[in-house]
Simulated scan of single mutants.
Amino acid sequence: MIAVLAATAVGLLSAFLPFTPAEPYLMAAVATTGTPPVALGVAAAAGQTTGKLLIFLGTRGAIRSPWLRRRLTRHTPGTPRPPGRWGTMLAGPKAAGARLVEVMERPRQATGMLLVSAVTGFPPLLATSVYLGRTPLRPVAFAATCLLGRTIRFVAIALMPRLAGY
Rank of each mutant, 00 (worst) to 15 (best):
L13Q: 06
V155E: 07
K52F: 02
A118T: 07
A15G: 05
L5Q: 08
R64T: 10
K94P: 00
M27F: 11
A95R: 10
A96D: 09
V4H: 07
G149V: 04
A110H: 06
P66N: 08
M160K: 00
R150H: 11
L53M: 04
T151S: 13
V116F: 12
T20H: 02
P136W: 02
C146H: 06
A7E: 01
M113I: 09
S117E: 04
M27C: 14
A44T: 03
P36C: 10
T151D: 03
W86S: 15
R162E: 13
M27E: 15
R134L: 03
T111P: 03
T145S: 08
V155F: 04
F19Q: 06
M104T: 08
R138N: 15
T145I: 05
S65H: 15
L57M: 14
L40K: 04
G97Q: 11
G92V: 09
A46K: 04
R70N: 13
L72Y: 06
G47D: 01
G92A: 15
L115T: 06
T151W: 00
T79R: 14
R162G: 14
T73I: 03
L26C: 06
M113Y: 03
Q109S: 15
V130A: 09
R106H: 15
R69I: 12
E23N: 04
G84H: 12
T8C: 13
P36H: 15
G112K: 07
Q48I: 05
V30E: 04
A95H: 10
R134D: 00
I152F: 07
C146N: 11
I157D: 05
L159A: 09
R64N: 12
T135P: 10
P161R: 02
A118M: 07
W67C: 07
T135N: 08
V10M: 11
W67V: 15
R85A: 14
R106M: 02
Y166E: 11
L115H: 02
G47T: 01
A141C: 07
A127Q: 00
M113E: 02
G78K: 11
M160V: 14
L54Q: 09
A62H: 03
A22G: 13
V101P: 00
R60C: 11
L115R: 02
T20R: 03
Y166C: 10
L137Q: 10
P24W: 05
F122D: 01
A46F: 14
L13I: 15
A45N: 11
P107Q: 10
M104C: 15
P77F: 09
A3W: 06
F56N: 05
R64F: 00
T88K: 13
G97Y: 02
G133E: 04
T49M: 13
L54R: 11
R60T: 12
S129M: 02
P80V: 10
A96E: 12
P77M: 10
F122V: 14
G51E: 10
T128K: 01
L54V: 12
P82V: 08
R74V: 14
Q48M: 15
L132R: 01
F142V: 12
A96N: 06
G92R: 10
A118Q: 08
V101N: 08
L5R: 12
I152H: 04
M113N: 00
L100Y: 04
T49H: 03
L100I: 15
P66C: 05
L147N: 05
L72S: 05
R134S: 09
V30R: 02
A15E: 02
F122S: 13
L163M: 14
A96M: 12
